[in-house]
């Protein structure tokens, strides 16, 4: 039998000792997650803004599909990306399978619909307020999108945060396409799964505590920024 508090004590000791293996795993996790969220924002913010600000044939269907994609099963995404990147797949020649790039691709696919769907809602609300004024200014479509994204920037930080939350906690897809290879594709979530199955609960819990801490710090920073923006009437 193990004592939870004994394991927690050892886990905290591991964190405080901050060995090279631990930092390698944490840094790779952050690199993969932040890159995926940045790419998802690059695609999802303008796409969501377009859908939110403009009426076009098929808009309802696009919205339904986008909302459905928010609940994409990670293992299914992992499987599809695996098939695309495997040696016999259409992108096999790139040799990306079992690399951090493959993990970034999988996470980007998972996070983009979340960013786009939430952006659509934020921008749609703001556009309802601005639409007549923008029409009066004679703004072109790309100027409207740019202005809406800029004025909604503090709300969109929360959108990016939702994407970050999904990406940083993801395990199924990155395990399939990354392979959880030591010193190559091992990230916090996949390591927690692996070490738990091996009975190495101290390392698993240490990574769990770190994961939670990162999530709390990022959330707190974004919320503080947004709160100050609200106080200053910019959000």
């Amino acid at each position: 039998m193990f004592s939870f508090f004994d394991i927690l004590t050892e886990a905290l000791g591991l964190i405080l000792s901050w060995d090279r293996a631990l930092s390698e795993i944490v840094l790779l996790s952050l690199r993969v997650t932040l890159t995926a969220v940045a790419l998802a924002c690059l695609i999802g913010l303008p796409a969501g803004a377009l859908i939110g600000a403009f009426r076009f044939p098929g808009r309802t269907i696009v919205t339904v599909i986008l909302n459905a994609l928010m609940g994409l099963p990670p293992v299914v995404v992992g499987l599809v990306v695996y098939l695309m990147l495997s040696a016999s797949g259409p992108l096999g020649v790139l040799g990306l399978l079992y690399t951090p790039t493959a993990m970034i691709i999988a996470q980007t696919i998972l996070v983009t619909p979340i960013v786009a769907a939430l952006t659509k809602q934020v921008v749609e609300d703001l556009h309802g307020e601005y639409a007549e004024q923008f029409a009066s200014f004679g703004l072109r479509a790309h100027d409207r999108i740019a202005a809406l994204l800029w004025d909604a920037r503090y709300s969109l930080l929360t959108v990016a945060l939702a994407g970050f939350g999904r990406a940083v906690a993801e395990v199924g897809a990155v395990l399939i396409v990354g392979g959880n290879i030591n010193h190559v594709t091992r990230v916090m979530t996949t390591t927690i799964a692996l070490e738990t199955s091996k009975g190495n609960l101290e390392l698993a819990l240490a990574l769990g505590v770190l994961l939670l801490t990162i999530a709390v710090i990022v959330n707190a920073a974004v919320m503080a920024l947004r709160a100050s923006a609200v106080r200053a009437a910019y959000a």
């Binding site: 307020e129 007549e132 004024q133 009066s136 004025d151 910019y234």
Partner: peptide, 13 residues
């Protein structure tokens, strides 16, 4: 042309 609305629309700037 330009227009001023009854309830002014202020950009968040």
């Amino acid at each position: 042309q330009a227009m001023v609305f009854q309830n002014p629309v202020m950009l968040r700037r």
